[in-house]
Amino acid sequence: MTQELLAAVELILGRYAAQLPLTIPQIWYAAVADGVLVKQERTYRRLVDVLDMARRSGRISWLAIRDDTDPPVEPRTFDGPGGFHRAVADAARDYRLDRQAGQEARLEVWCRTPGLVPQLATVAAPWGVPVYAGAVFTGLSGKRDAARRAAAGGHDAVRVLVISDWDPARQHVFTALVDEVKAFAAVDAPEVRMDFERLAVTEQQIAELRLPAAPVRAADRRAFPGNAGTQAEALPPDALAAVVREAITRRLDAAVLEDVLAREEAERRALLNGLRLQRGL
């Protein structure tokens, strides 16, 4: 049975190769959708144990799965002047402008699940859209920082695209989040309009994609426009990427972005040429 589960996991990782690394809940929901596991807590715990064993043995790459949420803080070091010069050249090759410059509204993606950030950042990177998690949902400082970014961004509006679980508790968090950030924005960025839109999960996505969902508990009296709830990680990784990609491209002016990209490329070439000339002297 363990070998069958591992084979199913390998198929899932192959299916979503473009979205790696996946979180363990994403793999679990995919296995439930495939009929490999039933949606029970015991099968999740079993999957965790099997994945631990597979990664320790080398059968599954450590790079394929993300189960950490806290980014490391490490000092930047070099192996000498040569390493420093290589780092400068790499930085020049990675030179980027603000790709949202000149757009009518600045876009941000906010995700309730920190483990999904690498996937979402990969999707959003070509358009220069940042992805935030954690503090923007849970801490006052994070919410105020969002308002201060809006004030400093140079745009008339900020549109926040939110990815979160679909249940009464998360809907309550979403409503409170919107109210609190807008209250900070009224003080720190009074001339900037802040709009919030839930991208995922929605009741329509649950129905159309047949996502695993659990009925809302009768004892939960909080206002909720649905009958069942599910986690954001239940959304297949490729479907989540498509939702984010479509939302971004629909809201950005392609001609404005094209002008920024052309200037970015010209400036990148100038930087690299300057470095080559310096090394030749």
Rank of each mutant, 00 (worst) to 15 (best):
M1E: 14
T2N: 02
L6R: 14
G14C: 08
A18F: 08
Q19W: 04
P25T: 00
P25C: 02
Q26F: 01
W28M: 06
G35Q: 06
K39L: 05
E41F: 00
T43G: 06
T43I: 00
R45M: 04
V50L: 02
V50E: 09
V50C: 01
A54I: 04
R59S: 07
R59A: 06
P72V: 15
P72D: 11
V73Y: 07
R76Q: 13
F78R: 13
G80Q: 15
F84Q: 10
A89W: 11
D90V: 06
A92L: 09
R93W: 02
L107Y: 01
C111F: 02
C111S: 14
P118F: 09
V123H: 01
W127C: 04
P130Q: 00
A135D: 15
T138A: 12
T138N: 12
G139P: 11
R144Y: 10
A146V: 02
R149F: 02
A150K: 05
V162F: 06
D167Y: 05
E180I: 13
K182M: 12
A183F: 09
F184P: 12
A186I: 03
F196K: 08
F196A: 07
L199H: 13
V201F: 07
R210M: 08
A219C: 07
D220A: 10
G226K: 02
G226N: 12
G229S: 10
E233Q: 14
E233I: 03
A241D: 00
A242S: 05
A242E: 00
V243Q: 01
R245P: 09
D253N: 13
D253L: 10
V256H: 11
V256C: 11
V256R: 15
D259A: 15
D259F: 04
E267I: 00
E267Y: 01
A270M: 00
A270R: 02
G274E: 05
L275V: 08
R279T: 06
G280V: 00
